[in-house]
Amino acid sequence: MQAPPPEHCPGVESEQAGQVSACAGCPNQSICSDPNKKREDPGKALVAAALKDVKHKLLILSGKGGVGKSTVTTLLTRYLARSYPDSNFGVLDIDICGPSQPRLMGALGENVHQSGSGWSPVGIDDNVCLMSIGFLLGSVDDAIIWRGPKKNGMIRQFLSEVDWGNLDLLLLDTPPGTSDEHLSVVSYLKDDSAPDSVHAIIVTTPQEVALLDVRKEINFCKKQQIPIVGVIENMSGFRCGHCGHSSEIFPAKTGGAAAMCAEMEVPLLGSLPLDPAIAKACDAGEDITSVKNPTTEALEGICSKIMSSFN
């Protein structure tokens, strides 16, 4: 049994590690307080080696759940793959407890294969590949009941032991919150010599209860020094397919994403409507980016802004 960290543990990366009163009696105090023993996680070097041919990494984040992080990831990937047929795109689903990418990408029931160079991600299209813990589960009912360290180990494996090959962009779909998964992925991907290789996109819906958590996520990015490409507002209006009535399902009583972006000083990339047809297509894993509709029109603008931010 490992002893739990002390209640007010300053964190091993903190400058006060091993120095504050809470550290007294902690079995790791000697490790934390000794500057010579501080070593980088060996996983970081492995990740850097495995991802050396991946040009850009884009985190899709939101403090709030169910706002459409996974749907936006899927739509962006498919639209980008269609618009840039000569570029390669990868998607990594680091939502360990609730992976959605296999369904949204139409890859339910696929298997990942192990080869000499690591796990081979599942090919979705000529220039799109996907890795998710969903591929490693026997059934949809299987639950991953893991505490943080096991989730971190899995994320490290996904980053260091998957044969991603040459990618122009790796999109990382994340779970909600500002906890283990987010800290791990940021610490593994962040490369101080190339600060521009990791970017973040924030997804939100217009109502205040979502914006509240999204502001926390933006502050998380600022604290971790991840550049934010911008905010995508999802489900910003709803037109009922049955009665044709347009309604604000999630009323933007506080000005929606636009006001929040102005307040937090981050760009708004665009808004996606809540379209029942898209929801149905996503549930079925169908690609709808070839159809002209308000969603793909909005995607066009968003994608060009994202791609231009990388150059």
Binding site: P4, P5, E7, T178, D180, I218, F220
Partner: peptide, 15 residues
């Protein structure tokens, strides 16, 4: 502050 993030790993959340 209502915009302050709580950036904690599991053990702190458990506590």
């Amino acid at each position: 502050n209502r915009t302050d993030p709580v950036i904690w790993r599991g053990p702190k959340k458990t506590m």
